[in-house]
Amino acid sequence: MNCDVCNENDATVYLTQIVKGEMQKVNLCEDCAKEKGVTDPTGFALADALLGMDSDQEKSESVDLMTCKACGFSHSEFKKSGRFGCSECYSVFQSGLESLVKAMHKGTRHIGKVPSRYRVVKKYNDQITELKDLLLNAINDENFEEAAKLRDEIKLADADFNESNEGSLEN
């Protein structure tokens, strides 16, 4: 992911701001973060709010007002119970979640069982990611013949995936 400011370097600093109950995300590279005076490079402020160790009262209050559109669950509710309202909450409240999860678990990525219907999606995602990487390399190398071939392959993979998806929806 590229930095939102210079759009050149890889973003390593992820910031989240709450504006009127909506979450806005800013991704910065190390340099731009320094330049903007971002002193909280790991985004721990939200994690601290999640853990109930708020250093910034105002910030945590605005976080508390966030709600999940799918289930109406609020962040202050999470602070009370330590549990979420629905699976969608994980994307709504995702900022800062990773450091919370990191403190609880051995890692922050699941590497165990995958339900079969997600295996197709995962396989497709992995395949597309790989093809796009190759495409980028081909373009950089000005190997346009190879690039055209890869574009076709991506189209084919997309079509295959959409087709199999439609098939599964009919079931």
Binding site: L97, H110, G112
Partner: peptide, 20 residues
């Protein structure tokens, strides 16, 4: 259709049960 996330695995009410 289980709630499943590519990063966090099986999604649970409490984050202490995420993943597997």
């Amino acid at each position: 259709d289980y709630a499943f996330d590519n990063q966090y695995g099986y999604l649970t009410a409490c984050p202490t049960n995420l993943g597997t």
